Amino acid sequence: MKFLQTMLVSALALLAPLTATGSAHAADAVLSKTWDQIVADAKSEGELTFYAWWGEEFWRDAAKDFEAKYGIKVNVIIGDNTATVGKIVAETPNATGTIDATLVGGVSLKLLLDANSLLGPIAPVIPDTDKLDAKLSVVHEGYATGGYLVPVYRNQVGFLYDPEKLATPPQTWAEFTAWLDANPGQFAFNDPSKGGSGQAFVQAALVNTLGGDQIAYDGATEVDPALTATWTKAWDWFNLNEDKFLITGSNSDSADRVNQGEVTMAAQWDDDTAIALAKGTLFKRAKLYIPAFGLPGGGDSLGIPANAPHKDAALLFVAYLIQPEVQVQLNKTIGSYLARTDVSGESAILPETERQQNGRPWLPGVYKSLYIEQFVSQVLQK
């Protein structure tokens, strides 16, 4: 395991210059401390401020447990992700900011990297990062992170369905489109501008109508017009088949349509499904799977602003959130699957083998933003 950690650290060190060059601030001495020094200095700092946009129940419980263990108070702020990212970027030129650690997800990552707003690389400093999902540890939303982020949980989009209506769900794109033809109006996905499960289906449809290969997009930081010139084929497919699917207003709206029997199958998040099943708000026989033609998934990560006022405490809190018992509690509380691959969660509604075989990475943020925009203009507004 020590060898794997050494390899990961080496890989992250190589990737760092290619992506986030750190911050406009000088290289921080905190990253050269021993872990014991960081823990001791974190206790001296005595507090930190953590921002997230959802999962309040888990973050607040974790903060209380962290304070009980280390005597360090965590101020948990739940707010709009776009506003949080804007705040971090705006504060980057300042010697000291107001945020110590933050949940990072979606295309906001590129904004943070481009603004040199993150402390790092932090992954080589924090214990047990070699036990986190290898893919998400290196690439997040299509961007190499260079160790500036630490994965905290994974999530995956699948197809939620009623097995009493659909005994053998479609696997290939050809099987799926044939099923749509035979069952018009029985599939739902949400407007991609209003939820990630809809974004996942639109990406899968885009990739598969164009041949099923998304390698050409890997690592892109700018849009290549040659690649997007053929996207009209995908929008034509949606427009030609508009009577065969239902476009809903949100992730939860799609799940409700399955739950109410209005549709047989819908694109849906694994964590939302796990929580709904646990709470009894979704019928118990409901199933979720990832078709062989692939649906994207990834997860969210933790980052520390380069000018965080309590960097030691922030590093210790990030390390705490990836410990086995905390990861299991995260999975139990909010349903998102563990970022660690050496621990199993209670809400493992998708087999790990299926996640690895049929899960696909998101297209880089510049393309993801563009396909959402084009879907709205070329399909919804047609």
Rank of each mutant, 00 (worst) to 15 (best):
G185K: 04
I126Y: 01
Q214P: 03
L111A: 13
K194S: 15
T172M: 05
L227R: 09
A83I: 13
A144T: 03
V343I: 13
V258R: 04
A204N: 04
F66H: 02
Q357I: 08
K233Y: 11
P192K: 11
A267H: 09
P364A: 15
L315M: 12
E57M: 03
S44C: 09
A95L: 11
Q329S: 12
Y367S: 02
D270K: 02
L113F: 00
G142L: 03
G335L: 08
L15D: 14
H310T: 14
V9L: 06
Q260D: 14
V125R: 10
D65R: 07
Y51W: 13
T341V: 14
T129F: 02
P296F: 14
S197T: 08
L227I: 04
V328Q: 15
G261R: 03
N259M: 10
H25A: 10
A308R: 01
R340N: 10
L246K: 06
V76D: 04
V104C: 11
Q329W: 07
V104E: 12
E141V: 08
A229D: 10
T177Y: 14
G158E: 15
W54V: 12
T19E: 09
Q199C: 09
A348D: 13
N81C: 08
D100G: 06
A95S: 11
P151R: 10
L330P: 00
L380R: 13
F245C: 15
L206E: 14
A95Q: 14
W237N: 11
D243K: 06
G120F: 00
L160V: 01
T168P: 00
K69L: 09
I88T: 07
K165H: 09
T209I: 05
V258C: 08
L18Y: 12
I77V: 14
L227K: 09
S347L: 11
R340V: 12
V202Q: 04
E141C: 05
V207G: 12
G294D: 11
F317V: 12
H25I: 01
L103S: 05
T82F: 05
A220D: 10
V202A: 10
K69E: 14
G158K: 08
E57A: 14
A11Y: 01
A174F: 01
L180C: 09
Q329I: 03
F66V: 01
N208T: 06
D300Q: 02
A16Y: 00
L112H: 04
M1W: 12
D36I: 04
G303D: 03
G365R: 03
L321Q: 02
I126M: 06
G55V: 02
V379M: 11
G365P: 00
D114L: 01
V207W: 04
R360K: 12
L180Q: 07
A348S: 14
G297E: 12
I99Y: 02
I322D: 05
A174M: 02
A274T: 10
I122S: 01
V39M: 08
K87G: 04
S117F: 01
D342H: 05
D271T: 04
A234I: 08
L210E: 08
K135I: 13
A205W: 00
N155G: 04
K2P: 05
R154H: 00
A188T: 02
T172Y: 08
G198C: 07
D130N: 06
Y337M: 15
G147N: 08
Y320L: 00
L160E: 08
G198A: 13
T264G: 11
P291R: 07
V150Q: 00
T98N: 09
F159K: 04
V326R: 00
D236N: 13
V152E: 11
W179K: 05
F238C: 10
L180K: 05
T209N: 15
